[in-house]
């Protein structure tokens, strides 16, 4: 586990992705979900909430581009009580809000933490964006990049920071592969080449428990953070 400095550094007054609160207690693990429009970010977040909510105290921050649609969807689907879902507005630039100016997202995260303490996990969904959109390390502990097979099997080969550097790459909608003529083996080979030792998983969220590979990865992230904890 990462050992923190014994003294509080001045920049820690910003409460960015420091693993502890100012009082020394652990704050919730923050995981960002990015990726192109329509790849299944909201569906993944919703499925994770359903799978993990009995074991973990979870909250979600959505970053919609010009509506509150993702937040509204999550509330409508009742994957979490409404007070656990917050929406951030991004002024036509979703990547700015998760990377260059994270102040609104940090606000949302901290307000959820204050209102719902103790939280185990905060899932932050980016607005659908391009292949270069990544989360600032000041905002999240880990980031997941979600693409889907229907957008073309050449996306892993194209690469870009989302594909190559995200902590987990999710290739979603594998159920559609036969209909769009996509070669999943080639996608896997390209993903392995682009990501070296970093993990990637294939999912189909239409299948029962289809989010399991992502849920297992999230559970591992939590376990790595609290070695010895039983959760």
């Amino acid at each position: 586990m990462h050992l923190d400095h014994p003294v509080t550094l001045p920049q820690r007054h910003t409460y960015s992705a420091d693993p502890r609160h100012p009082d020394g207690s652990h704050r919730a693990l923050r995981i960002g979900f990015g990726g192109p429009v329509g790849s299944g970010k909201t569906a993944t977040v919703a499925a994770l909430c359903r799978t993990l909510r009995d074991r973990l105290s979870i909250a979600v921050v959505t970053n919609d581009i010009y509506t509150q649609e993702d937040a509204a969807f999550l509330r409508r689907e009742a994957v979490l009580p409404p007070e656990r879902i917050a929406a951030v507005e991004t002024g036509a630039c979703p990547h700015t809000a998760i990377r260059d100016d994270i102040s609104a997202n940090l606000e949302a995260v901290e307000q959820l933490e204050q209102a719902l303490e103790p939280l185990d996990l905060i899932l932050i969904e980016s607005g659908g964006d391009n292949l270069t959109a990544t989360f600032s390390r000041g905002l999240v502990d880990h980031q997941v990049f979600v693409i889907d097979v229907a957008a073309g099997d050449d996306i892993p080969r194209k690469g870009g920071p989302g594909i190559t550097t995200a902590d987990l790459l999710v290739v979603n909608k594998t159920d559609l592969a036969p209909y769009v003529g996509v070669d999943l083996d080639a996608m896997a080979a390209d993903s392995r080449r682009q990501r070296k030792d970093l993990p990637f998983v294939f999912t189909s969220l239409t299948a029962a428990d289809g989010v399991r590979p992502v849920a297992d990865w999230v559970t591992e992230c939590l376990a790595a953070r609290h070695p010895g904890a039983t959760r």
Binding site: E89, D101, S103
Partner: peptide, 12 residues
Amino acid sequence: GRFPAGGHAHSG
């Protein structure tokens, strides 16, 4: 305008 204080999301 790049000072990270949230202004980018507002149109005044």
